[in-house]
Design a protein around this nucleic acid. Structure first.
Length: 110
DNA sequence: AAGGTGACCGGCC
DNA sequence: TGGCCGGCCACCT
């Protein structure tokens, strides 16, 4: 990739980076903040690119049911789960326990 | 240039 | 009750 700054991607990164420690959010939530609630798919696409970045905690981003859908994209198989558990989030069978309690609603920086 | 894909979401059958 | 389908927008080949 050249120096092309993908505005859309950066926006997703900006929100993802705002996710506090021990908290998680969903693609749809981020998409909604970006103004494209129906385009949650591309949020995941952006996360794919963010996979190359260290500033974007993709492991804190899951689908709306708290399921680690994208864990398969990480280095290992349970790396994402271990990262979440490391933050105090209980994950069983790729699913976050008490997801609502750990859910963090992202918001655009003012 | 057009077609296909994608870590989703929501609704419908 | 669960599974299937379409929609959405941007990126990739």
């Amino acid at each position: 990739m050249t120096d092309k700054n993908d505005n859309f991607f950066e926006r997703v990164y900006a929100v993802a980076r705002q996710i506090p420690y021990g908290k998680v959010t969903s693609y749809g939530a981020i998409a909604k903040v970006l103004g494209a609630a129906r385009s949650a798919r591309m949020v995941g696409w952006a996360m794919n690119a963010s996979h190359n970045l260290e500033d974007v905690p993709a492991h804190r981003v899951v689908n709306r049911i708290g399921l680690l859908t994208g864990k398969h994209h990480f280095d290992g198989t349970n790396l994402m789960q271990q990262l979440l558990e490391s933050e105090g989030i209980e994950v069983v069978d790729n699913q976050i326990i008490d997801f609502e309690n750990h859910f963090w609603l992202p918001e655009m920086e003012k």
